[in-house]
Amino acid sequence: MTGQFNIPVRVTRIEQVTPMIRRFTLERYDGGQLPGFSGGSHVVVTMRGDDRIHHNPYSLMGSPDDKRHYQISVRRDDEGRGGSLFMHTRVAEGDTLEVAPPTNLFALNRLAKRHILIAGGIGITPFMAQLHELRRAGADYQLHYSFRDQENAAFRNELEAACGRRITTYDASAGEFVQPGQLLAEQPLGTHVYVCGPKGMIQAVNDAAFELGWADSHVHWEEFAAPPVGKPFRVVLQKSDMEVTVPGSSSVLEALEDAGLQPNCLCRGGVCGECETVVVEGEVEHNDHFLPDDVKQTNSRMMICVSRARSERLVLDL
């Protein structure tokens, strides 16, 4: 699926926002309109490196009203598989990239009476697009933004200008931390909470909401899993009668694509559920946020975009 509908875009502007974060402004290569999106959407960016192709999901952070530009921010990860490093070291203004049309797995609930947005670090990006929608709707919202220190407080000034007294910032280097239990206590009926940030923060917000009796449908979170690096293993595709080796630094999905196949996929971050695949044989190392825990334990299904094998061989119903 992915790869067939990519839109060629030109990088019109690159800003070094913090020592680790760059913001990229993209426009269609032919100057036309880009597909519309709602706040919380992401695009998968295809980067053609010398020895491999990277596909990374990034949240759109510009205004949904701007049909000419997409904006994404990329945090440099020197330990990762190279996609963010490619964006930081190889991409210059005027270069071309490809993006897939936007998908939203982290949308605002329009019936909410109040929105509580909790961001940690680069997790601020989806909220920056949502803020446009919240302000236009005159919605009741609060933004709680945590960062490591002042030097890494990306977009702080523009956020404060946009949100005024609705934003609260937390500087971890000064000992300031979000307290989800306090934040979520005694909120009026119809409140929705949204969290995007480090694993621990997402977990803490989910735990606090559960403890306070919040229904799951009022708790929203997004965390893209990067496919982890691991040991190589063999994948047997039962229906196609093929055998493929998955290298340590590739995901199953990427290895199948390298072999000329086009498995269904969308987010490439273990979130959307599109690439769910039946496992016939073998043990799975689950890295996704999609499958329920009881399904993961049975080894009967896997998300091939981020999960790997624990055994030396996996047989898939593909």
Binding site: L189, G190, W214, S217, H218
Partner: peptide
């Protein structure tokens, strides 16, 4: 406050009218 659940019992006309009050106050079906 969040953490409240609404339970409604009675005729079909009654329960859905009361459920609609809950929905209009921002409650989800859950």
């Amino acid at each position: 406050a969040m953490g409240t659940r609404l339970y409604v019992a009675g005729s079909e006309d009654f329960i859905w009218r009361m459920a609609a009050v809950g929905i209009s106050c921002g409650m989800s079906e859950e």
